[in-house]
Design a protein around this nucleic acid. Structure first.
Lengths: 244, 244
DNA sequence: ACTGCGCCTTGACCTGGGTCAAGGACGACC
DNA sequence: GGTCGTCCTTGACCCAGGTCAAGGCGCAGT
């Protein structure tokens, strides 16, 4: 019990390296941050990669922690957030399976996580030592270029987010969010599936859950959409974005 | 007259390549994006670099323009901004001499400027073909690493900005701005020089000029600081950030 | 000297969205 | 089947900051 508790505290860690025939090995191999690597290089890297599991609500790392690893999410959901001195939390990003996160700190002067990572659901991930990866990249222009483009994409996403926050209001931010999550569309109608709990969505949009609730209510009242639990039917995509 | 007008329209361009003994050549050589390059590589690059000058208010490129160049600012001041469909403008960043900008788009999938660049003062800059630079970097791990760290620094700055916008209010954003612009400090006092017109500062902070004016007024009324045109004397640094 | 034009300040007013408080709906566990 | 916890909704109220309108100040051009 004690031992188990201790492991939970830092997330469970399985140091045994991955098998070359495991599905995870293959998935990782195909990831764009690794696909450019030579087979040998990849194998040396995998040897220092550890599997890790997190229970829902567990924190993987805190903002300001020394950053020695970046992560690949295999199963689950991880949120990257900022916490204000006053205690309020802002969700910057929600990472879904198949994606890496925190790879960008590898090249920052200050080797500290600029965000906090917390599991939104029970999750399993791969912990990749930054140092080892950087060494490989250094010798591999292709990987370097991919990494650059990856980081630039992040940068661009952040610029768009700042735009959302400053030149758009809550309603249009919600519209953008909804449009980004359409699962099926035809003509002027669409179906949307909300994959996250409402309060996480609210934080992503930098509004309060109450406001999110009210905005959705308004849209329903306007006849723009109908809501059935986590599924939303948009009746008029045109009217979803009134002031563009 | 006609010819001059035409040139102004797109900014004046001087295609003659730089002399190896000009001060600008030396400055560029020392810039961290170039200092890692071999002398030969640098010289081939310089051969395709063009000098450009902009009058105050002139736009260098618009958001969405095809991106073939990034820039080094030699003299002047350039603002990077976003314009909302409604016409309001948000200043993302103000570039001062000695800095490069737009280097990050080099590695984005979409080769379009994500922001608009506008001269805040008469400026002269170097126009560097992205393609040529990328080719060099590709062959040069050192330069690649520097570039990565540069882009990551930008990314981190954006994350901090999002934090400012969401978890801090206008007053603390202003405090942060002031603290970032201290020119002289001793004990609990400091002197600050505002290098930019008030309305540009306001936009950087995502507030209206009126609000900026009022916030400064409040601080003066509270006895926290005194203002003399563009110079601000802070009497109590402690009281500048009341709620941290 | 006069006029015009940026740029800043001030006041009066308005509103989007936050805060607080009170439930309702649903599932998990005993 | 209760009861607790989590998540969501709704209503009432409030406030930071935006908007609108009216000057003030400095300086460039004639």
């Amino acid at each position: 019990m004690d031992a188990q508790e201790a492991m939970r505290g830092a997330g469970m860690l399985d140091s045994s390296c991955m098998d070359a025939d495991s599905p995870l090995y293959a998935t990782l191999r195909r990831h764009y941050l690794f696909s450019g690597l030579e087979q040998d290089d990849f194998d040396t890297l995998v040897a220092v990669v550890a599997a890790k599991s997190l229970a829902k609500g567990e924190v993987l790392f805190h903002r300001g922690d020394e950053a020695n690893y970046f992560y690949f999410l295999d199963v689950g959901l991880v949120e990257l957030n900022l916490v204000a001195p006053t205690g309020e939390k802002k969700v910057l990003e929600v990472v879904s399976p198949g994606r890496t996160f925190a790879e960008a700190i590898a090249f920052m002067q200050e080797q500290k996580y600029p965000v906090t990572a917390e599991a939104l659901a029970d999750s399993t991930l791969c912990q990749i030592p930054i140092r080892s990866y950087v060494d490989l990249v250094y010798a591999n222009p292709d990987a370097c270029m991919r990494l650059l483009s990856d980081v630039c994409r992040h940068l661009h996403a952040r610029v768009r987010e700042i735009e959302n926050l400053t030149v758009q209001n809550a309603r249009s931010r919600l519209s953008s969010y909804l449009l980004d999550h359409v699962v099926e569309t035809s003509d002027d109608e669409a179906t949307i599936r909300l994959e996250l709990p409402r309060h996480v969505i609210a934080s992503r949009l930098s509004i309060q859950p109450e406001t999110l609730s009210r905005l959705l209510r308004n849209m329903v009242d306007e006849g723009v959409l109908t809501i059935e639990d986590r599924v939303i039917f948009v009746h008029s995509l045109a009217r979803l974005r009134p002031y563009d």
